[in-house]
């Protein structure tokens, strides 16, 4: 076995942006539609990923301030949770764009190209139902977090001493990501429908 083979495989796995959709590095590669939106989401991930670094930096700041200076902050924990939550929410769309969500494709493993195309259409349709239903639910939830029962704009806050409107923000962020995933799934559906009808060999 060549020396760095498996590490290289991992690196390839991680550096998908360099492959930019051409390379077939996976048995399931034919499930990756590579729409323009997916590419954009993929690129956006580079910036969103930086939030993790921000979370590390401010957590470290909190530890130092608390341990060395006996001056814990009131804002770090909540900010870290919000940063990570947004990354998690966006991570769903990001993994959808890269088609890296984990699946058990038992039928796919034995299927030929034609059946795979059908499965792609079915899966894209299901992903669309998922994003639409969850997106609708997230919309209802977000509306309640942004608008008080009296009908005024009033953002849900955390209720802590710092009391930032982060719950309302995270809920809105989740909604945005779900809408994004819905549009992604819709474009996938269009892509696979075209693929299974138009480009039959």
């Amino acid at each position: 076995m060549p020396d760095r083979a498996s590490s290289a495989a991992i690196a390839r796995h991680g550096d998908q942006e360099q492959a930019d959709g051409e390379a077939v590095y996976d048995l399931l590669a034919d499930t990756r539609p590579v729409t323009a939106l997916d590419r954009r989401v993929d690129r956006l991930g580079r910036y969103v990923g930086v939030l993790f670094l921000v979370a590390v930096a401010i957590s470290f700041y909190e530890i130092v301030m608390r341990y060395a200076f006996n001056a814990p902050t009131i804002w770090v924990h909540e900010t870290v949770i919000a940063l990570v939550a947004v990354c998690y929410a966006f991570g769903g769309a990001f993994a959808l764009a890269r088609d890296s969500h984990i699946r058990i494709g038992l039928i796919r493993a034995v299927a030929g190209p034609r059946v795979r195309k059908i499965l792609n259409v079915v899966n894209a349709a299901m992903a669309l139902v998922f994003a639409a239903a969850l997106g609708w639910a997230a919309y209802l939830m977000t509306r309640k977090a942004w608008i008080s029962p009296a009908g005024e704009l009033s953002l849900d806050r955390s209720g802590s001493a710092w009391n930032p409107p982060l719950p309302a923000m995270i809920k809105a962020g989740l909604l945005v990501c779900l809408v994004l995933m819905g549009v992604q799934a819709l474009l996938h559906l269009v892509h696979w429908l075209r693929d299974s009808m138009g480009r039959e060999h």
Binding site: G14, E17, G49, G91, F94, I102
Partner: peptide, 12 residues
């Protein structure tokens, strides 16, 4: 690369 991989892994 590490950060994008973290994002991807966490998303999954």
């Amino acid at each position: 690369d590490s950060l994008t991989q973290t994002l991807n892994t966490c998303g999954m």
